[in-house]
Write a protein that binds this DNA or RNA. Structure first.
Lengths: 158, 158
DNA sequence: CGGTATCCGAACTGATACTG
DNA sequence: CAGTATCAGTTCGGATACCG
């Protein structure tokens, strides 16, 4: 299967025009294709499952992660505070999102052995570095919102 | 329903600790809740459907948009080229994604009246401004990939 | 308070077949 | 070539009920 580092190298650094490296999805189908490639049984279009872009996009991909990170921007928060601030999120999704972020090392989860229980969530250093980018996205959105809406109106009119 | 601009103001500029403005989803349920609030029949937690962050997150939210924008980084590309480069995307998803990006004014679609037909896609100025951010995300991903994977390994071990 | 477990409809996604 | 239409499998997401 070649060296893993070599495969990772196939992943485009910053979208320069290299060839066919993206592997964004985790569907069964693609996993199968990947497995086949790994075993060398299929036509050779090299693409890496470990592609960095896939990782972020998976995490950014779900609607809530970004919001959670953004909400933690001004410091540690309790589960309940997060639930309250991120309007529209369900308990299930909040928990699920927090677990994912925790797994990725983006937030920490601190349980205080008190009664009633108290659980605090905070960004890690890694999380804060991601926050910079995510905040940029939000800023972009607010800055260009009017433009986007104008474009949509134009498109819909036609 | 109050002035729309006032509602938009409720949307947090850059995740400073204001209160409960996010409305990321477009589910029927939430639309109903929003409609209820609009008519003033429900408890008052002000949040804006036009929240800028919702807009971007919706667009960034699906896995493919980011990849398409990234792939268009080095210039105009044909439909087929995109399909080839973005490995794993189906025709349906590619078309759907491109339509969405076109609607938002992020890409242009140029049909050449030739036979066989030829359709070129390119980033608009708006698209290029978004590219900057998206490229940053990709860079972040590649830079911190090892960290994320280490965190995941640690989490899974436990 | 801060979750977990289950259920179920909605939405997403891809494969396939067909068209201008 | 660049789509559109249709259909089936999977996942997503919320409501509800319950637990430590």
């Amino acid at each position: 299967m070649g060296t893993p580092s070599a495969r990772d190298k196939n992943c485009p650094p910053t979208a320069t025009g290299t060839s066919v490296p993206y592997f964004p999805l985790e569907s069964r189908h693609l996993q199968v294709r990947y497995a086949l490639k790994e075993s060398g049984n299929v036509n050779p279009d090299p693409f890496s499952r470990n592609c960095g872009s896939r990782k972020v996009i998976d995490r950014i991909g779900d609607r809530w992660s970004v919001l959670v990170v953004l909400t933690l921007a001004d410091g540690e928060k309790r589960y309940g505070e997060l639930a309250e601030r991120i309007d529209g999120i369900s308990q299930k999704m909040l928990t699920q999102t927090l677990r994912g972020l925790e797994r990725d090392g983006i937030v920490t989860r601190t349980v205080h052995a008190s009664v009633p229980p108290r659980v605090d969530y905070a960004l890690t250093d890694l999380g804060r570095s991601l926050l910079d980018l995510v905040a940029g996205l939000e800023e972009w959105a607010t800055r260009h919102l009017a433009e986007v809406e104008a474009a949509q109106a134009r498109y819909d009119a036609r």
